[in-house]
Simulated scan of single mutants.
Amino acid sequence: MLRPDTFALTGLLALLTMIGPVAIDLYLPALPEIGAELGAPTSSVQLTISFYLFGFALAQIAYGPLSDVRGRRPVLLVALVVFCAASLLCAVAPSIKLLIAARAVQAVGAAGAIVLARAIVRDIYSGARAGRELSIMGMIMGLAPAAAPTIGGLVQAAFGWRACFVAVFVAGLAALLMVWWLLPETLRDGPRPKIAPADLVRGYATVMSRRAFRAYLLLLSSASAGLFAYISGASFVLQEMFGLSPVEFGATFALTSVGLICGNSLSAHMVMRAGIGHTLGVGAATLAAGGFAMVAATHFFPHAPLGLVLPMGLYLAGIGMSMPQAMAGALLPFPHHAGTASSLAGFVQQCVAALSGALVGHLLGTSAWPMVIVVAASGCVTLAVWWASRGVRGMS
């Protein structure tokens, strides 16, 4: 078993948080082919992302409180088994409706990995140290969007879109085996909350009653809205409107992910010196700058893929700086209910992300502007919330 406060454990937790992004990013280049083979319009294919996000959000409600009672490790193992089984169902789905349903079940498994990885961090660390740990995990996790679309494009080109989900199954199986062999139980001994419905409601009400938590929750949600607007729309915009091949799309997606890795790296160093609030502010300003840059580039260079890709890289740098700190700030007041707080934060964050992605998918036609506007608005809202909540976040 791995020991706490080691880079090996950090690496394992980062790999667990990669499961969800891999399940989205690896098959993005295949979205147009899925629509063509299954006879589904763009709006229906996009629902394989939106239903994944909704399933991901709803499942988080259960994982945190359940792990606060039963322990992190057994609940995580069950989640990974569900993820692997659903990934195989995705690979053999004969219709778009069954693929959408299988994606929702896949998300139920993936949700457990990220919720419990964050809860484990809170079990072990506190303060700026927790923010640094989440930033390091985010930096490693950034390899998923950097590499997954490129790998997915190559896999699709060689074996077809169904092979992308087989690759996701292999990744899930590897995570399952590593958790089984290496992950210790981190939930501390002592009084544990009940999981009766009334107790769950009271637990969530207690978490939501903290003004600081609500402020951090708004920051997480607004930043995520822009991220998933891009994830939902980029495949169609860059491939169908700009004419990129699946492999070229994967390469451009990897380019934007460099910003995520750089942002997390900078955040991990900055938070130990400047604290969570200041690091979060720099990230929020970077999100807004990325959104403004995308609007300007789309206006002046409407047919240039780099006009979307480079500003999104800047936006992702802001994600890397802001989201780990916002999540750390949301969890810090709840050492004995870290799973519950992680679940509630993830639920709201992913619901907003799913709505954002569905909106972009519905509005996309022959222009990239629906996606661009949502990204820019999300960055501006995040900066505004950070500024307005400075006093609130100093209170718990």
Rank of each mutant, 00 (worst) to 15 (best):
V92C: 03
M294I: 13
Q46V: 06
L310D: 05
A225H: 00
H299Q: 12
L53H: 04
L76A: 14
A117P: 00
G339C: 06
G39C: 11
E185S: 11
T252I: 01
G313K: 12
A229L: 01
P305E: 02
V155G: 04
S232A: 15
V81S: 03
L359R: 04
W369G: 03
P184G: 08
V352H: 03
L310T: 09
P29D: 09
A326V: 14
A117M: 00
T286G: 06
S224W: 07
P335K: 13
L99R: 11
Y63C: 14
L383A: 14
I231C: 01
M241C: 03
G138K: 01
P4R: 10
L255H: 06
K97F: 11
A110L: 09
R72Q: 10
S126T: 11
G203C: 06
A79V: 10
S389F: 10
A376N: 14
G391N: 11
I319Q: 12
F83R: 05
W369L: 13
L88Y: 04
A345V: 00
G281T: 07
R188N: 07
L15K: 01
F300Y: 10
H303S: 10
L26R: 02
H336S: 09
A296F: 09
Y204T: 00
A368I: 11
S343F: 00
V348H: 05
P302K: 08
R118F: 14
V179M: 04
A225I: 00
F228L: 14
A14Y: 10
V75T: 04
P335A: 07
I124A: 02
G138Y: 02
W181K: 15
W161E: 09
R70Y: 15
P333C: 11
V372C: 06
L183H: 12
C84K: 02
L308E: 10
V375D: 10
A296H: 03
F51L: 13
H278V: 13
A93W: 00
F301S: 12
T366M: 08
G291T: 08
I61R: 03
A297Y: 04
F300Q: 05
I19C: 11
H303P: 00
G365M: 09
H269S: 12
L31M: 15
R214G: 02
G250W: 15
I195M: 02
R129H: 08
T42A: 15
G112V: 13
R118S: 13
R188A: 14
G391A: 04
S209C: 12
G127Q: 07
G291H: 06
V75D: 01
M312V: 11
R214Q: 07
M272D: 08
L154P: 01
R273W: 12
I19V: 15
V237E: 01
V155D: 06
Y63V: 08
G172W: 10
W369H: 09
V69K: 08
S257W: 12
L332D: 09
